[in-house]
Design a protein around this nucleic acid. Structure first.
Ligand SMILES: [Mn+2]
Ligand SMILES: [Mn+2]
Ligand SMILES: [Mn+2]
Ligand SMILES: [Mn+2]
Lengths: 218, 218
DNA sequence: TATATTTATTAGGCAAGACTAATTTTTCAC
DNA sequence: GTGAAAAATTAGTCTTGCCTAATAAATATA
């Protein structure tokens, strides 16, 4: 059994790995958890002791099979609870993440599977992230962001990278959600803002930061 | 905002009060929480500081309005989550309490009300305990236990006092649940065991401890 | 390669929440 | 009312998880 804090470290490390970070360092982890590298070093020692990860200064941090399984289960629970909160309790997609951060730590052997079944085995969470299956398999995450689409190209929104209420509320205001079709009209060289067209409606200009946090496909 | 530990103290004190204990002492609280009176004294100091309760050695502990409201909300969430786990996820009544102990601490202003609505505003939890309403009102709890029914008298199960899996599994085995009709056949003076009849089926003998943990009405 | 900068680690502390072992109060019994 | 027993409180520790400051190690840079 792990503490809540240990679970959050495992999840953070798992996510950094999924994001493609090749060398996972104490500093990277401390940035993800918004705490101090010294605290991370303490905790890494403890997690190595518990055989949940390996740490060599040259290679960085690697989860063991056991550590990764725990991390996957937490992510699975997190995303399933987000679906529950949105679909069953009617919360908005900008509200569910914070509660899921608490719910993901609720412990019971069958909980994830029962929730999964109750929700009808959803494949994606409200932010477009794939929900790991009971056997631990996870669909590949799309990595292309709107900023990478060439002028004239078009795509559909498949996920958001940033799940902060600020970003999600802005998307809601622009009427952009998972599945929305976007055409890249023009890229402004000065500050990398982009002009896009939503469906067949009017065009909008969004910032570089915006365009780098919207995950698209096609 | 309170810590998880503070919430558990408030809930324990609220429950002792509901059970009719006139003077709530550090020892009583430590027994409810399965910890040490010395720890309780530390925490009481902190909760007095936060104006969540008052403590005078002569009168014992009393929750303030603020403290009681927090306690009621925790109990409300606990019981609503129990209904959710039983009705929506299909758990048994002996399994839900442990998870509800975790879920009751999930924080969000609207959570209890949304859950309540989703569940169809249930009045009682799986163990027969009344679910506090959004405005804080709570139906009176029945207090008569099976042991108090006179020979020849009959009654219906309305709740269980003990919610441990051991007791609930035993009840399940005896096919006793909320609503089951029981007739008191005989009380054995020697050890206060009682012989009861379930519905119109056969008779069974149960212990004094058993008879004191089954709440009945009529 | 030597120096500057960044990163990692160690050392020393702090707050929360619990515990054990005194010690002081209260309560009970006679 | 006195002495014994029970309850409450205090004192002193421990663990977890975090922090800051100091030091050591690794990287970059010139
Ligand atoms: Mn989330
Ligand atoms: Mn999500
Ligand atoms: Mn319960
Ligand atoms: Mn209950």
């Amino acid at each position: 059994m792990q503490t809540l804090s240990e679970e959050n470290y495992l999840k953070a490390i798992y996510n950094l790995d999924k994001q493609g970070l090749k060398k996972i360092t104490p500093t990277a982890i401390s940035e993800a958890l918004n705490n101090n590298p010294a605290s991370v070093v303490d905790m890494l020692r403890k997690l190595v002791e518990k055989k949940l990860l390996q740490y060599e200064k040259s290679k960085g941090v690697k989860l063991t099979e056991k550590g990764r399984n725990i991390a996957i289960l937490i992510v699975r629970k997190h995303r399933l609870w987000e679906v529950f909160l949105l679909e069953k309790l009617g919360y908005g997609w900008e509200e569910v993440h914070e509660m899921a951060e608490q719910l993901e730590h609720v412990q019971h052997a069958e909980l994830a599977d029962r929730l999964d079944k109750f929700l009808g085995f959803p494949e994606y969470d409200p932010h477009g992230d794939p929900i790991p299956k009971a056997n631990g398999e996870t669909a590949v995450t799309y990595k292309t962001v709107l900023a990478e689409i060439p002028e004239g190209g078009s795509c559909r929104v498949v996920a958001v990278k940033d799940t902060s209420p600020a970003f999600l509320q802005y998307l809601k205001k622009l009427d952009i959600g998972i599945g929305t079709k976007i055409t890249m009209i023009e890229k402004i060289p000065f500050d990398s803002s982009v002009i896009i067209k939503l469906g067949k409606s009017n065009t909008t200009t969004v910032s570089r930061v915006f365009a780098e946090n919207l995950v698209v496909h096609e």
